[in-house]
Design a protein around this nucleic acid. Structure first.
Lengths: 245, 245
DNA sequence: GAGTGGTCTAGACCACATG
DNA sequence: ATGTGGTCTAGACCACTCA
């Protein structure tokens, strides 16, 4: 009773188990909330050891298809619905991809304790040290975007000694720090007088603001707010209905 | 040599091994291309079984941090792109999730041949019939966003007879039509006089505009432009590192 | 108390790539 | 031939959570 679906590339047993469960979920046969068979049941079904089943199900947890709870069992998670994969470009490469000359300027650098608001937004102790950076990115000599960033120095101690006058903090962090989760917030605001002047646009002009927070496990790494002139920039995301393999 | 970063939550041994390797990579001590210690070496270092090391390194493969080759060893990969998973909300459910009463109004409905611009944007013949819809979504009695939509009637003939006075075209299409690819374009614009009046905001106020095109195979299905008041709306996207397996 | 998943062990055989 | 990772076993103990 092992072939409920089409043949996929299943070179190993745990892959076959994983694919079988995936097929049950994707076909709707096991809807969200459904309790999938216990490990010991699948152990009998596939005539294998528990470790093999455990590996297959652990991969499905990492993919977000199921969640597992001791004593209760393993359950199909709520839909991934439709999801978009939005590539986040390094600003330097983004500018260069437009065929423009990239330039970067560090406007402000300050090591300070996290304030009350920062602590709340990032789940930090109020006195944890953070590195505050403000910089301007230029494309072809024209201001391209403004970057305001906080880095959690406790999680990334190397940042305190990094030379951000030559390399942007975004580029630096991309190279140096792994991450496991992040959150984007994309909004539109009218430029205040200071930002309008810095970007060379009219006061009150629409700007696209991308606010990103990044974690590694439970540790907060960085928070960045990037402001683009609305008439010169757009985010583009490519979509697929659901993830596979 | 593992104290280069802050203490993370390491409740299990394979997590500690995984975090140690991650720290070596993120600190630059193990640059891209570097061969990390063999499994049997780490087995001795951590005084554990090979399965435990194997699990930790397998997770790093799934996260795209390392790649492994038989006989050769395991190597630090080049920095991987960040990708975001952006949930696409149905506007009706989006409003209801805010705890507000949803209301929908169809402002315009017109069947016409695709114009020159539409044909270019949607890869349609210039005389292919398209259904043009304009509608307003309300949340709690207040305008929530404006929707301008074109539907390719050739690809979705049922749309010609659908009653969009009761159900929004977005909701209808989500239920009726499968799709295989889509593209988002997110930008910020200043409201023109007409949109400002329709949304009840000041003329020139910043708005968030989401432009989406959807395909099924090679067929264009629909193109929609949704305009939100910038001060009342933001897109939020959850992220994970890109996987490769 | 009982049953689940989480983790770990100390082996084993195989596939693969190099010498 | 050698040494690596890929996979799997048949146990084991623990943590958690329900009854």
């Amino acid at each position: 009773m092992r072939g409920t679906g089409a043949d996929l590339q299943e070179k190993s047993l745990h892959e076959r188990i994983r694919n079988d469960v995936e097929r049950h979920i994707m076909s709707g046969e096991w809807p969200p909330g459904y309790r999938i068979p216990f490990e010991h049941e699948m152990t009998r079904q596939y005539a294998c050891s528990r470790m093999t089943v455990n590996k297959a199900l652990g991969e499905l947890v990492q993919r977000g298809l199921i969640e597992r709870r001791r004593r209760l069992g393993s359950f199909v998670r709520q839909p991934h619905a439709q999801s978009a994969v939005l590539e986040i470009h390094d600003i330097e490469r983004e500018v260069q991809a437009l065929g423009l000359v990239y330039r970067y300027r560090l406007d402000k650098r300050r090591l300070r304790p996290a304030g009350k608001d920062d602590g709340a937004a990032m789940a930090l102790a109020a006195d944890a040290p953070v590195l505050e950076l403000t910089c301007t990115h230029f494309a072809g000599g024209v201001p391209f975007c403004l970057e305001e960033r906080l880095i959690n120095v406790t999680a990334v101690p190397e940042a305190e000694f990094a030379d951000f006058s030559q390399i942007g903090p975004g580029t630096w962090l991309l190279k140096m720090v792994p991450w496991s989760a992040a959150e984007h917030r994309i909004s539109a605001v009218s430029a205040d007088r200071k930002n309008a002047a810095a970007l060379g646009i009219g006061s009150g002009a629409a700007c696209l603001v991308i606010d990103r927070r990044t974690w590694h496990g439970t540790d907060y790494i960085t928070r960045v707010s990037v402001t683009y002139p609305g008439d010169r920039h757009a985010l583009v995301a490519q979509f697929s209905p659901s993830q596979s393999s």
